[in-house]
């Protein structure tokens, strides 16, 4: 095990963490401001990826594809909010879980109806493909490095948005006291639609960015959705800071656990069964992490009251 490999794996963990943050930011905002638990957030991730693949197919431009993913996911999100979600704010979590579960069914099968059952093609643009050499002799894929940078930039932008802008103030006020900001004359339903569309756009962007190095297919959002939930629960629901901390923690744990657990097991087992046993434990690791954190801090790292 060389230190270069370890560093490279840390970068990989960072990249996964940054992607999870894009997903988790929207989820946690929507929960923080509207008190809504949205299982269909993964569908918006899928919408972004499909929109990007379709536009890249027509125009050949990756940049246009990214813009399309933002636009399509934001539009789908706004539509979802206007038609369904806004009827759920006053309901209990149970109704929210069920209604958004129903939305997953509609979005998944609807996408399959539109685009067919086979995965779509979306590739890394040529000027971003291939590896770059980093200081210390690490060869790292340029595209993944770009994802890390885009993700960190968006995280910074989001923090600025919330700390410095008018909308940010309204969002924070909404988190603190929902009735109050309505009383202050803020157009609350517009704010809600905006926040929901913003979260959706981030999820769509994540889907498009990841779609270029993974496969664009129906159901791609669900595994990410579950990870994103783990992230916001670890971080404390409603907290953007918590979402970032949780995302990086989950990204690192999942990546490093998957690499090092089998090697750890190989110290006292034969290689084949160590590979298998290590992989089994690694796949459960983030859930164990989440359970452990909730036992110590029942409302997550940065959570106030749930």
């Amino acid at each position: 095990m060389t230190y270069i490999l370890v560093l490279e794996q840390i970068l990989n963990g960072l990249q996964l963490g940054v992607m999870l943050f894009l997903m988790a930011a929207g989820l946690t905002l929507v929960f923080g401001v509207m008190g809504l638990i949205n299982l269909a957030h993964g569908s918006l991730y899928m919408v972004g990826a499909f929109a990007a693949a379709a536009v890249a197919g027509w125009t050949g431009s990756f940049l246009l594809a990214l813009i399309a993913s933002l636009a399509a996911a934001a539009a789908a999100g706004a539509l979802m909010e206007l038609v369904v979600i806004r009827r759920l704010y006053q309901r209990d979590h149970l109704d929210q879980v069920l209604a958004t579960f129903a939305l997953i069914l509609i979005f998944s099968e609807g996408t399959r109806w539109l685009f067919g059952s086979f995965p779509l093609f979306l590739d890394v643009p040529s000027h971003l493909s291939g590896p770059v050499s980093l200081p210390g002799g690490i060869e790292y894929p340029l595209y993944r490095l770009t994802i890390i940078l885009i993700g960190l930039a968006i995280a910074a932008g989001l923090f600025l948005l919330i700390a410095r802008t008018r909308i940010g103030i309204q969002i924070r006020a909404g988190e603190a006291d929902r009735e109050m900001i309505a009383a202050l004359g803020v157009d609350i339903s517009k704010l809600y639609t905006l926040v929901f569309a913003l979260g959706a756009a981030l999820a769509g962007l994540a889907g498009a960015l990841v779609g270029a190095i993974q496969s664009v297919q129906v159901g791609m959002g669900e595994p990410v959705l579950i990870l994103a939930f783990v992230v916001i629960v670890i971080g404390g629901i409603g907290s953007i800071k918590g979402a970032l901390a949780g995302a990086l923690l989950v990204g690192m744990t999942d990546t490093l656990g998957g690499v090092f657990l089998p090697q750890l097991f190989a110290v006292f087992m034969d290689p084949a069964s160590a590979a298998s046993a290590g992989a089994s434990l690694a796949s459960m690791l983030i859930y164990i992490l989440m359970a452990a954190i909730l036992l110590v801090r029942p409302s997550g790292l940065y959570g106030g009251s749930a």
Binding site: F229, A291, L294, S299
Partner: peptide
């Protein structure tokens, strides 16, 4: 030990485990 959304999510996590 948890409640609300945290309870929903932690039961989901145990199921996934």
């Amino acid at each position: 030990r948890t409640s609300g959304v945290y309870f929903i999510m932690i039961t989901l996590a145990f199921g996934q485990m």
